[in-house]
Amino acid sequence: MTITPDTKDWTWVLREACPECGFTAAAAPPQDVADRIRQHPARWARVLGRADAAVRPSRGVWSPTEYAAHVRDMYRVFDERLRLVQEVDDPEFADWDQDEAAIAGDYASLVPEDVADDLATAIGRIAATLDAVPGQGWVRPCRRSNGSVFTAGSLAQYMLHDDVHHLHDVAG
């Protein structure tokens, strides 16, 4: 089954509540993101422990395992970005094609337990990166190549929404 690519520009979640998951990213202080995401590996492990974790619920919708693999890779990408924004003035990031990453990473064939372990490791790493951001580091600017402007803080909020949203998608 082919997954329908997500072509939405999700940066609007930094300005308003997400009607799908109910999360308001702008209300999450960036300094609290590390502590919030440290609670997520247990939630993902419960989801990935389900007997149907590798089964797509319908045509064109990722399985819980595929969502978790996406979140794992999203955290890896954002870890690199958050490190770079602290080291380089106003870095520009190439857009990350999540659909291409899913194909290249063969998310559909991954073992749920392995993804749970890898996701916990990725969360631990990004949480440590977030913990290391100094006070004024949160306002350092960065951009995506499509022109979307972020700060380290809004990048952390945007990232948190992605995880919260996908936990919602898989009833986690």
Rank of each mutant, 00 (worst) to 15 (best):
M1Y: 06
T2I: 13
T4K: 12
T4E: 12
D6S: 05
D9L: 08
D9N: 15
W10F: 07
T11Y: 05
R15V: 03
R15A: 11
A17W: 01
C18I: 06
F23I: 12
P30C: 02
D32R: 13
A34R: 02
A34I: 01
R36G: 02
Q39K: 14
H40V: 10
H40W: 05
V47K: 05
D52V: 09
D52L: 12
R56C: 09
G60A: 09
W62A: 05
P64T: 01
Y67Q: 15
Y67A: 12
R72P: 00
R72K: 13
Y75W: 08
F78T: 02
D79K: 11
E80N: 10
L82E: 03
R83H: 12
R83W: 03
V85E: 04
E87F: 03
E87V: 09
A94K: 14
D97V: 05
D99N: 14
G105S: 12
Y107D: 14
A108Y: 10
S109Y: 03
V111F: 04
P112A: 13
D118Y: 04
D118E: 15
A120W: 02
G124D: 13
A127R: 07
A128S: 13
A128V: 13
T129V: 13
D131I: 10
G135Q: 15
G135T: 14
V139A: 09
C142T: 03
R143F: 00
S145T: 10
T151S: 12
L155I: 06
Y158K: 08
Y158N: 08
L160K: 00
H161T: 07
V164R: 02
H165K: 10
A171D: 15
